[in-house]
Design a protein around this nucleic acid. Structure first.
Lengths: 191, 191
DNA sequence: CGCACTTCTTAACTTAAGTCAATGTCTGAC
DNA sequence: GTCAGACATTGACTTAAGTTAAGAAGTGCG
């Protein structure tokens, strides 16, 4: 749990009082590998802070899946859209490995937001960070070919490659596993 | 300026005191059509609230352009990435029409954040909203064909079609003008 | 050990976007 | 009115991803 506090320090320093108020609302949870944390159609009423493990955030339409994001230790995971709007989630959150995380309920979080401006601000920082991540990802779809996106992934996010099977990477890149396989083949030929 | 306050009411109610503190930091500006509000390489130190007009937020690489977003009356426009990180902007913000907007400087805004928790929270709401917009857009790139994205644009965002030339729409959809032209042709054949 | 299952690769074919070039179409400036 | 420039369309060709199907490689389980 102290690890979590350290992660927050990247964004903002919470006083002991603020941290106590926050942390006593957290509930520790564990999830086996390949298990749903949030189902499709469910309203997301929580934010989870990952201590250990990995999650994928994906969308299932007519049996086809697309992975919107991966989350790892130190990340906050939630369907933020459903959380904010109160609408049923279109996405599924699934653990990829056995994971440990801390859940805070929306109701509790909003009470903290009201009681502690610093925690509200932490919420802003988290939202801003989410925005930066997804905006960068959007730009990569606007400008780059799947091959370029794969290269960038290799370079920047090697954690993904260790923990995530090929076909999920393909989904994350917005292509089919067959296409990723061909991209990889083209690459070895060049090298 | 009261129009701007009304827009904020969608997110949060500011007291007169809060609004006064905020609004006296705003500077009214005007810009002719097709003029840069932010250059590539410049650090973005402001947020602009649009009263009238339209902007495009785009990226220029080796002479090729991709439009990341459009902004219209009621929207907050900024290079939020550059604003938050202090890094030079990769994107350009350009007015599409003659526009009127209110600028607030980062320094002033951060002072307001510190002095008025409600304004800090408004900042959170704006960041959250930005996130929702860009996350939805990312999903459309993950799942939908350019043709589907164009259809959705027609249905949801007719304002874009009135104010924005074809070749910019293509760029926004992540395709070339020729391809958009062909998509439109396929459409008329079907109908 | 061998079977079943999942993942990854390969191949043949289809589909649609990119590229390049030419031709319309429209608009504003003079 | 005409000319120049920007925008949109069209056509021929290239490129790469999607589709379908088959087989190879790896993994876990009885």
């Amino acid at each position: 749990m102290e690890g979590l506090r350290k992660h927050f320090e990247k964004f903002i320093h919470l006083t002991d009082k603020e941290w106590d108020a926050f942390s006593c609302k957290l509930q520790r949870k564990q999830l086996a590998a390949r298990t749903y944390l949030l189902e499709q159609g469910e309203v997301c009423t929580f934010v989870a802070f990952i201590e250990k493990g990995a999650f994928r955030f994906f969308y299932n339409r007519d049996g086809e899946e697309r992975i919107t994001a991966f989350f790892f230790a130190g990340d906050a995971v939630s369907n933020y859209r459903s959380f904010l709007t109160g609408l049923p989630s279109e996405h599924i959150i699934e653990s990829l490995q056995e994971s440990v995380f801390w859940i805070i309920q929306k109701k509790d979080l909003y009470e903290l937001f009201n009681a502690y401006p610093n925690i509200d601000r932490l919420g802003r920082f988290i939202a801003e960070n989410l925005y930066l991540t997804v905006a960068r990802r959007l730009d990569s779809f606007l400008f780059d070919s799947p091959e370029k996106r794969y290269d960038d992934l290799l370079r920047r996010n090697s954690r993904l490659l260790q923990d995530v099977p090929q076909f999920m990477l393909a989904s994350y890149l917005g292509i089919k596993p067959e296409s990723l396989s061909r991209i990889r083949k083209r690459k070895t030929k060049k090298a």
